[in-house]
């Protein structure tokens, strides 16, 4: 994905991320793509791999209202969206009851937290009881609470790898599908690039990277509004459309992805994918989608197809791109 952010307005934000977080190029790009396309991002990785830090830096660096919530085993919706209040009002008169003596008691939610944020981090989402997530994820999907729209651009959920932790439960498929972009993040220590871990160590020891950085905004919050306004107009040329369809066809026909083992939903792969392709083009500073933008699809398949198929997605994409070049 060379050329990303070259000359685009996002370069400053990316530089800010690079200044405070070592490595994780892919996750940084995916986060920014999520903000540009207004898609939610799911990051899975071991503790301490800068997942939350990246999200917070991206938000603060662009003056977006940020909300962080640590999910836990007993998480309830009310903790995320504000306070539950009981409202009582004297009952209004009605034709049958000209002088009512009584009151109307109504349970409602005073908006807070998630409902007012533009970027939110839902930390350790797998710790929350699966059932509790339904409502939350519905809010994320519709970007509405009740009838009121919410200002949220992107929710970033983080999770530890799905091992056999005692309280972890895998997200159920419908919930997983709400996160357009999904990727796993590794730790630098023990990665195939030991020099990154070394660099992290050096920069911390030398004080170049602070643990709690004071962040100055590097762009204004209007940036994402401007980008989003342009997003829908970015042309998607015919060969790219064909390549996308061919890619999906190959997954189903040659790699046996079906409704039981994969989550190849129409909504994600025919509608959201178009947004991501366009976002990828915008981030590269281009005015039209190109075959190279199809690489973003590998951030969609991470947890939507079986792991062994996902491992082959880059290869499949190469073949498809070759065919429709």
């Amino acid at each position: 994905m060379s050329g990303w952010m070259g000359g685009s307005e996002l370069a400053a934000l990316r530089a800010l991320l690079d200044r405070h977080v070592v490595g994780h190029d892919e996750a940084k790009a995916a986060l920014l793509l999520g903000l540009v396309c207004r898609e939610h991002v799911y990051l899975e990785g071991p503790p301490g791999s800068a997942k939350t830090r990246m999200a917070e830096i991206a938000a603060r660096g662009s003056e977006l209202d940020f909300f962080f919530y640590q999910m836990h085993r007993d998480t309830r919706l009310a903790e995320l969206v504000g306070d539950v209040v009981l409202e009582r009002r004297p009952l209004a008169a009605s034709p049958g009851d000209p002088e009512p003596r009584g009151e109307r008691i109504h349970q409602k939610i005073e908006p807070g937290g998630l409902l007012l944020a533009q970027v939110c981090v839902l930390d350790d989402i797998s710790r929350a009881p699966g059932e509790a997530l339904n409502v939350l994820l519905r809010i994320l999907n519709e970007r509405k609470f009740g009838d009121a729209p919410i200002p949220l651009l992107s929710a970033i959920a983080t999770s530890n790898p799905m091992r056999d932790e005692y309280y972890n439960e895998p997200l159920d498929p419908a919930n997983m599908d709400r996160f357009g972009i999904q990727l796993s993040v590794g730790s630098l220590v023990g990665s195939s690039e030991p020099e990154l871990a070394r660099s992290l160590l050096d920069r911390f020891v030398d004080g170049e990277v602070e643990e709690q950085p004071v962040l100055e905004p590097v762009c204004d919050r209007g940036l994402f509004d401007r980008l989003f306004a342009r997003l829908g107009k970015v042309p998607v040329p015919e060969p790219v459309r064909q390549a996308l369809l061919q890619f999906l066809h190959v997954l189903v026909r040659d790699y046996d992805c079906n409704e039981t083992n994969a989550l190849l939903t129409d909504r994600s792969f025919l509608v959201k994918s178009v947004k991501l392709l366009r976002g990828s083009a915008l981030m590269a500073g281009r005015e039209a989608v190109e075959a190279g933008d199809l690489d973003v699809l590998r951030w969609m398949t991470t947890f939507r197809v079986p792991a062994e198929v996902h491992a082959q997605v880059p290869e499949i994409l190469e073949r498809v791109k070759e065919k429709y070049r």
Binding site: L245, H249, V252, N258, E259, L264, D266, L270, V271, V274
Partner: peptide, 18 residues
């Protein structure tokens, strides 16, 4: 779903519409 059932023409139309 059109994608997971491999209904190519339908998938095509949904994409066009998107």
């Amino acid at each position: 779903g059109a994608v997971s059932s491999d209904r190519a023409e339908e998938a095509r139309q949904i994409l066009e519409r998107a």
